[in-house]
Design a protein around this nucleic acid. Sequence first.
DNA 1: ACCTATTGTCTCAAATTGCTACAATAAAAT
DNA 2: ATTTTATTGTAGCAATTTGAGACAATAGGT
Lengths: 231, 231
Amino acid sequence: MKGYLPHISYDSVVFGFAEGRLKILIMKYHNTGYFALPGGFVRSTENLNDAVKRGLKERTGLDKIYLEQFYTFGSVERHQPATMKTILKANKLPLKDYGWLAERFISIAYYALIDYSKVNPTPDTLSDSVGWYEIHDLPELIFNHQEIVDKALETLRLNLDRKLIGTNLLPNQFTMNELQKVHEVIKGEKLRRSSFQRKILSLDILKRHEKRFNGKAHKAPYLYSFIDNKE
Amino acid sequence: MKGYLPHISYDSVVFGFAEGRLKILIMKYHNTGYFALPGGFVRSTENLNDAVKRGLKERTGLDKIYLEQFYTFGSVERHQPATMKTILKANKLPLKDYGWLAERFISIAYYALIDYSKVNPTPDTLSDSVGWYEIHDLPELIFNHQEIVDKALETLRLNLDRKLIGTNLLPNQFTMNELQKVHEVIKGEKLRRSSFQRKILSLDILKRHEKRFNGKAHKAPYLYSFIDNKE
DNA sequence: ACCTATTGTCTCAAATTGCTACAATAAAAT
DNA sequence: ATTTTATTGTAGCAATTTGAGACAATAGGT
């Protein structure tokens, strides 16, 4: 317990984009072979959203993260005390102090969109690694974490056009082609180059910068950045 | 405590449609003048979703309800122990047994869509009335319940076209005009009759029945019902 | 028999999207 | 220096969807 709200946790699906693929952060627990989403708990006098931000800062080193709550998982089937007891034992943590971790939790799930290149994945005390995994090639995850990932991707897909969030997965400046690839990998389908470009530009949310000369033997693309406020 | 998960509650925004208006169920607490959304708590071995269904069944008498979770509110500002203590005092409930109600709660919010004509609003032990209020003409609500209502309506608006849910607010059979009014009142804008009709019919989700003769001096409209499964 | 309000549907204009084509161009190849 | 190659920016037209109005059909009143 020690200052945290009992039975309440959060899980986060941290999306990054690299090598043309959509990736998420997965933790591996010490000496168990168990894989899980990064998660945490809420202090007794802490805002839920702040708790999640705090946890993400610890795991990624990033401060201002695009973050969205998408579902709260509250089924009793989620509760698998044996799994958590195995993890505690592998970490030599006494049940008397840490047994509360093996109780039932209702977990609020968030997804985050971050610039892959800026992240410095940092394990916590229970885990010996935090790493990037391609979203369609994940190891087996504990509890219902695979379900959480699936729902995160589904929600991201639905929100992609409504909110203008693809840019959160890219560096400050990016080419139209990179943005299109982000959209394609989230939607899981190829998009027409000319239609995509026309659509995005008509939204008036991008600022055009100088070209990027990348040494390739063809016309150099313009760089764009996302315009936040436009009054 | 007594078998419930501490610090966890749910709130429900129950939508109904009557007199061309969108309404929701609001409870009034005994002897206090406090108004609130219908809510409740989760038993230690109960699915979150089942807890909400159980509560709605008690308040409305309905069994199969269209229900959707839309957000979990976890800010500390929600916590206003003085308000809850006033309610307990007005109900002559001793703090020693019921003080847990005045602690901090993280609340999972759901909205429900129901057939207004089928509901039988039933108060619980703390409240002396449950009644329908037009969504844009609510009394002042406790805690952050107004924020919850606002977010429920916003989510309903976003889901209206994506999911095919307008029919859940109407009786089994309804006219195209009634369905259009439901859409208009949720979106907060007038819709074109011919475009609306064309759009809805093209979805192939409605079955046409006989006409409804309502004694008015004009052409009688067809009745429709929602088709669930179509293979 | 005519009038009135509403319904179901058609039509054409306007806007959006799908798809192809083509000139521009950065650097490698000749 | 010229040609070649891969990619980019954008124009143009077809196909589709949506907006807006019009009109015949009709249930019941006058």
